[in-house]
Design a protein around this nucleic acid. Structure first.
Lengths: 143, 143
DNA sequence: TTATAATCGGATTATTTTATCCGATAAAAA
DNA sequence: TTTTTATCGGATAAAATAATCCGATTATAA
């Protein structure tokens, strides 16, 4: 198998996009997120907890509690979720797995892969959950 | 953590590049590959076995046995190794992990990520181990 | 104040990936 | 023919990732 982001990270991005799309002031329960996105309930809870610790979302316990964005959706980017969960190593490590792959000791595909990697980073760094709101709503409705 | 290709696949690509760079007609032992590339011996053996089953490399048992490319280095591409070990799912699955992400049910970053994915595929599909020979020799010498 | 409904968080289990062990087999060289 | 040096391949171990369990806590609403 082969993966770009961990399940945790994928689920985290889905959840934060959902919070942005669903937002009407009130909080959203992990149960709702779990059901709509079809993510195991206890698992998404753990992920939401860690996103809370990272300061991307807030939560309230108790009845009518739940989760919500910690700041304006125009200020939350996909790369923030990646950084919080998987970390940014992927944008700085060798695609062939060679140690110490750097401009002075480049792997055989160092430059050409580097270009792609930069593009990927830039994309995740420019897409805010706000900008993706409509597309998210559209995707959600088909789940 | 976050990964693009599995360790198996990374090691497999390194090994096949090494075979191409090292080639002088004679076979290369898994022991040599293990030592030069600093890959656990038993692990690279297993990977080489599977690449042999995939028809990318050949092997001989016994004294002066070892592994070698099964065809001309100009006809072996990095994507062949990926296809043999990790499979090509990564080039056809949603980066956000949404189910059934397709043109009719696109995820919020479907088009923009699709472009990157295609570029990555094209790159791996155009780089032959032959073309990468010099750069591989150069990298190897720094290990 | 009490019942309800939510998160919190530590412990545990399951699954996948990565790595290792070792006996069997095979081929070449001595 | 015997010894040496490889791969082969099945079984197992270790580590990382994914998922679950459940009791404790907390806040709201009735």
């Amino acid at each position: 198998m082969t993966v770009i982001f961990s399940k945790k990270c994928e689920y985290g991005m889905q959840a934060i996009l959902y919070l942005a799309a669903r937002e009407k002031g009130n909080l959203v329960s992990s149960d709702e997120i779990s059901k709509v996105l079809k993510i195991p309930r206890e698992f998404i809870s753990k992920i939401l907890q860690s996103l809370r610790e990272s300061g991307l979302i807030i939560s309230n316990k108790g009845k009518s509690g739940g989760f919500g964005l910690a700041k304006d959706p125009s200020r939350i980017k996909l790369i923030d979720v990646v950084a919080a969960i998987d970390g940014l190593d992927i944008f700085d490590s060798c695609v062939l797995g060679f140690p110490e792959c750097s401009p002075t000791h480049p792997c055989p595909v160092h430059e050409t892969w580097g270009t792609l990697r930069t593009q990927a980073y830039d994309m995740l760094n420019s897409e805010t959950v706000d900008k993706l709101k409509d597309k998210t709503l559209n995707k959600i409705s088909s789940l």
